[in-house]
Simulated assay, not measured.
Amino acid sequence: MHENRRHVEQINKALPYIEACIGEGKSLTLENVSQFCNVSSFHFHRVFQSCVGQTFGKYVRRLRLERAAFWLLYTAATVSEVSESSHYESNAVFSRAFKKHFQESPSNFRRNRLNISTDSFQQFFSNLSMQDIEPVDFCWVKSQRLAFIRKVGRYESVASLAWHSLKTQTQFVPGISASELYIGIAHDNPLITDYDQMRYDACVPVSMDFKPSFNIGICNLPSAHYAKFLYKGKEDEIWSMYDAIYYGWLLKNKISLINFAIFSEHRPCSEKNEIALYVPICK
């Protein structure tokens, strides 16, 4: 049990580091990450596969390709520029890897995803009033240090599990148990990532001296410009608004995003029954 606990702590330390490096387009090797976690490459490779369910190499390749898909959808970058920023040695190698993962070429992926018709968009939603959502504000959000618990799978299924785990495991932890702010990070876009691989983090802000333990990891919410939306409704139906943002507002308005995750924010003790959604945008 002690060994398993230590392994989970190592992976919780590694995942935000891996994802930050990929998000920033930095090179990344097994040796880099092993050194960051203060363990041998052999040990880390074995522990990573056991805890994450994928080899380190396969996980990194998938996230790099999904980052490339993100740039194709939400920026004006050319395929060559996306290939270079994804650390592929040539456009041909990048295109082969992309097609193997997404079953279509980068150019076709961009064209097909951006050509979602009005009819198919309307059929997608059961709540058609979501189609015309607009942000209530555009604002700068400062970086925050967060404690998190992650669950992987379809957001509608795993988000509540993540929050239950976080609240259960932190109910007696000083600095967390009395948190006045909950932050949910939805890392993945349903236009890009398979539902069973989508990552959701239930988070609370913590001070710099907070020490992570077992299932609780530490990550940083990056500072950036965000479009702020307000959701008022049943908490378990908020995913309709995420879909409306991804499938509607972003594509309809040709908004350029930066490669950070959408996050939600709500105050559990507030009398207002509303959740704020923040979408990272270029400005």
Rank of each mutant, 00 (worst) to 15 (best):
I281K: 05
E235S: 06
A224L: 01
I176P: 01
K142H: 06
M208W: 06
A276W: 03
M1Y: 02
H45T: 05
Q144G: 00
S50G: 00
D196W: 10
E84H: 10
K100M: 03
A202E: 11
R67A: 10
L15A: 03
C21T: 08
R67S: 13
F44I: 07
D196H: 14
S85F: 10
P268I: 04
K234Y: 08
K13M: 14
Y231P: 01
E31I: 13
T75L: 07
Y231I: 01
L191A: 11
S27Y: 05
I185F: 08
V60T: 11
V8E: 14
L146N: 02
H225A: 08
F138R: 15
T29G: 08
I192W: 05
W71R: 13
L114K: 15
Y246L: 08
M130A: 14
F109T: 02
E134K: 10
A92W: 13
K58A: 14
E156V: 12
Y59C: 07
T75G: 05
T168F: 06
M198Q: 12
Q49F: 04
P205C: 11
K254Q: 15
S223H: 11
P280G: 11
L28T: 09
C203V: 09
S223F: 06
E84K: 15
I11C: 07
C37E: 08
R6F: 05
S126G: 06
V60I: 13
C139M: 11
T55C: 02
F94C: 02
S179A: 15
N91M: 08
I218C: 10
E237P: 00
L191P: 07
N259G: 02
I116Q: 08
V8N: 09
K232I: 03
Y231D: 01
C282G: 10
H266Q: 07
